[in-house]
């Protein structure tokens, strides 16, 4: 029963991340959404590798541990690019989307 609960939670978190990724205009928000998606995947991996009532499979655990460090590395790199983009253009959104936004009459 525990596994079903966390599988449902991981699916919902992943879906929320996708929703946020599409919705967000600010790059920082997109990064938050991406990290949420990652969290959902990690939770799914560990839940599926879980024993009945013992510790989960060590292989997915090691992979998720690696994944957490990779996620923070990628996020840090993306944040550095965001700061530079903001310094250069004064905007924290991706250009294409702004056109899209104006085209949609959202202002």
């Amino acid at each position: 029963m525990q596994a079903e609960i966390y599988v449902a939670a991981s699916a919902a978190v992943f879906g929320t991340g996708v929703y946020g990724l599409i919705l967000a205009r600010h790059i920082l928000r997109k990064l938050l959404a991406l990290n949420l998606m990652g969290g959902g995947v990690f939770l799914l991996l560990i839940t599926l590798g879980g024993g009945a009532d013992g510790p989960p499979d060590p292989i997915p655990q090691a992979m998720v541990l690696t994944g957490i460090v990779i996620a923070v590395s990628a996020t840090a790199f993306a944040l550095a690019m965001l700061v530079r983009l903001y310094q250069e253009t004064g905007r924290a959104t991706l250009e294409l989307e702004d056109d899209d936004q104006e085209g949609g009459g959202d202002g």
């Binding site: 699916a11 919902a12 929320t16 929703y19 967000a24 600010h26 989307e97």
Partner: peptide, 24 residues
């Protein structure tokens, strides 16, 4: 910086359901 995209909610729900089905 919150946009409004009509596509966001259905795509989010669909991917969530997909991941849920895979997990199930």
């Amino acid at each position: 910086y919150l946009g409004s995209r009509w596509l966001a909610a259905p795509v989010g729900v669909l991917t969530g359901v997909l991941v849920g089905l895979i997990g199930w």
